[in-house]
């Protein structure tokens, strides 16, 4: 498989009023065309910073990002980003259809084609009937689907997603995860998704990159050997899934990468501690 994204020696330091803050340390990895790679790490470890440097929204202090071999300077034309905060990311003054259409102006000059593409993208995410509504008339999950449609409408070769499902309820999150898996399978998309949710990273990813605490750097690159066809109930109940998530949880807590991909005795105590901390975290940020 050809390499889509190549990140090497990436680091970023913010200059703030009270000095400098090293948000990400030394990050290197590659994403191949057609892969869905998840980056998982605790809140504040620099996940958003990592995505922002990769997307060209900010220039990294050190290191390099190559998108199909070309160095990223400024946002590349064939890249799209989905943000966590869908309600702020969508334009409230435009209808759903227009929200998807509007950014296409930069690449499609014919109005009719923009309209057609937007309709098509809304169909992919199952929102054909909602085109005339305003974003606030939709539920949170549907709004994020609009944002996904908007990103897909430009047919990006790389889709970046920053905790896209962190602000919706659990049931909706499952639906959106399955929607993402379906859409990327249908369109053979290349996706890089960051999340703080261990289960989500394992459920969605072909690979999981584990990011250490701030300043973030990648400690492990884990292959997810689950079947391509995934199911919220059976996949999550499978022993492979359970072992993988325990391994990720252990790694997030500073555990050494296992020499064998899955440890025979999962460290469930560490896993539970992490999940409890994560739940507290989600609660404290859920109303933002």
């Amino acid at each position: 498989m050809p390499t889509m994204l190549e990140v090497s020696g990436l680091g970023h330091t913010y200059k703030t009023k009270d000095g400098v803050h090293n948000a990400i340390g030394d990050v290197s990895f590659t994403v191949n065309a057609g892969e869905l790679v998840c980056v998982v790490g605790p809140s504040g470890c620099g996940k958003s910073t990592l995505l922002r440097t990769i997307s060209g929204l900010i220039t990294p202090t050190v290191g390099e990002v190559l998108l199909h071999g070309d160095p990223v300077r400024g946002v590349p034309a064939d890249l799209a980003v989905v943000f966590q905060d869908y309600s702020r990311s969508l334009f409230p003054w435009l209808s759903v259809q227009r929200n998807v259409e509007f950014p296409l102006r930069t690449r499609v000059s014919a109005r009719a084609e923009r309209r057609e593409r937007a309709r098509e993208a809304l169909e992919w995410v199952g929102l054909s009937a909602a085109g005339g509504k305003y974003p606030w008339q939709l539920s949170g999950g549907m709004q994020q689907r609009v944002a996904i449609a908007r990103a897909l409408a430009s047919r990006p070769s790389l889709l970046l997603m920053d905790e896209p499902f962190a602000s919706v309820d659990a049931q909706t999150r499952f639906e959106l995860e399955d929607l993402l898996l379906r859409v990327r399978a249908e369109h053979d998309s290349t996706v890089l998704l960051v999340t703080h949710d261990i289960d989500e990273s394992v459920y969605l990813g072909d690979r999981v990159l584990v990011l250490s605490k701030s300043p973030g750097s990648i400690t492990t690159d884990l292959d997810v050997n689950l079947p391509d066809e995934r199911d919220q109930i059976t996949t999550r109940a499978s022993s492979e899934f359970v072992e993988l998530r325990s391994e990720v949880a252990r790694l997030l807590h500073g555990g050494e990468p296992a020499t064998r991909p899955s440890p025979s005795v999962p460290d469930t105590a560490a896993n539970d501690r992490f999940l409890a901390a994560e739940r507290a975290e989600t609660h404290s940020t859920s109303d933002t």
């Binding site: 922002r52 997307s55 929204l57 946002v75 034309a77 890249l79 799209a80 980003v81 943000f83 905060d85 702020r88 990311s89 334009f91 950014p103 102006r105 930069t106 430009s154």
Partner: peptide, 16 residues
């Protein structure tokens, strides 16, 4: 800030 990022990510022109 999210709209600023969104606009930049979609490479909107100055007038847009």
């Amino acid at each position: 800030a999210t709209k600023v990022d969104t606009a930049r990510a979609f490479r909107l022109s100055g007038p847009q």
